Amino acid sequence: MLEVRGLRAGYGAVEVLRGLDMAVAGGEIVAVLGANGVGKTTLNKVLSGVLPAREGEIRFDGARLDGATPAAIVEAGLIHVPEGRRIFPTMNVRENLELGSYRRGRSRRAANLERVFETFPRLRERARQFAGTLSGGEQQMLAIGRGMMAEPRLLILDEPSLGLSPLLVEEMFALIQRLNAEGLPILLVEQNVVQSLEIATRGFILENGTFAMSGPAATLRDDPELRRIYLGL
């Protein structure tokens, strides 16, 4: 569904992404993994149209998306749940969710809202509560739920486990698996190498703007170099 070829991007004179090639097929969870500052957020910004690509191609379901506006990318069904949740704290839970269907899925807003509430019962309980008063885990549920309101054809999750307790991290990865099992392809961008590779189909290890390693998740999990660099084993 998503194909990236020769992607280069950066800020001013600084080049951050240096010729990335990757793809996400229908039904997959593909993990892009790496430490802070290696280019993960820059990649997401380019895929979402917030930051222009300097070189390369981005194709979504065969159509070129490099150069498209963020609104057009959302309308195509490529939905990005950003790092840090980016909810609207002074709006209630329901209002935050409804904003997710502003560009896509508006005609089925009621049905999609019910689906989100079925997926996240705690959000139903807190539908009239200000989003800023939710716990960190509930805010992450809200951010993902808002993405679901746009009827994603592919969902980009940027650091969904960031700042969560170990128990909530387990719940979050179980949720990602469940969404994928329901037919939603997911691009999972994370620092959590171990748990991401447990649920992913394939993985890409990003270092200094290039993919240092890539392959089936099971192969990467057992790679001694990966275990040495990222797991300290």
Rank of each mutant, 00 (worst) to 15 (best):
L233P: 00
L179G: 13
S161M: 07
L162N: 04
V50F: 06
N36P: 01
L179D: 10
P166Y: 14
G183E: 08
T69F: 01
E138L: 00
R64G: 03
E118S: 11
E198I: 10
N36S: 11
L155A: 03
E225F: 03
S101A: 15
N192S: 05
R103N: 08
G183D: 05
R18E: 14
S107C: 07
G27P: 12
A76S: 12
L123K: 13
M148C: 02
F173R: 05
L113A: 10
G77L: 07
L167K: 15
L33N: 05
N96I: 14
F88Y: 15
S165D: 09
L123H: 10
V93E: 11
A111C: 11
V38Y: 10
Q191N: 10
K40E: 05
F120W: 06
V16Q: 02
M172S: 12
A218M: 07
L164G: 14
G232W: 11
R146G: 07
G203V: 02
L206S: 00
L231D: 15
V193I: 15
E151P: 05
V189I: 13
A68D: 08
D158L: 07
L17W: 13
Q191Y: 10
A131I: 07
E95L: 13
L220Y: 05
G37T: 14
V93A: 12
T42M: 03
N208D: 06
L123R: 11
V193Q: 11
L231N: 11
V193C: 06
E75T: 08
E170H: 14
R228Y: 06
I29D: 05
L51P: 04
R153W: 01
R221T: 03
Q139V: 01
I205A: 08
A131M: 04
G100I: 09
F60Q: 01
L43F: 08
G132K: 03
M141Y: 00
V169D: 10
D61Q: 14
A9L: 15
G136K: 09
L51C: 03
G145S: 04
F88T: 11
V30L: 04
L7P: 10
R146P: 02
R86V: 03
A68Y: 07
A218V: 02
I156S: 07
A200H: 06
L142F: 06
R86A: 06
N208I: 02
R228T: 09
D66E: 12
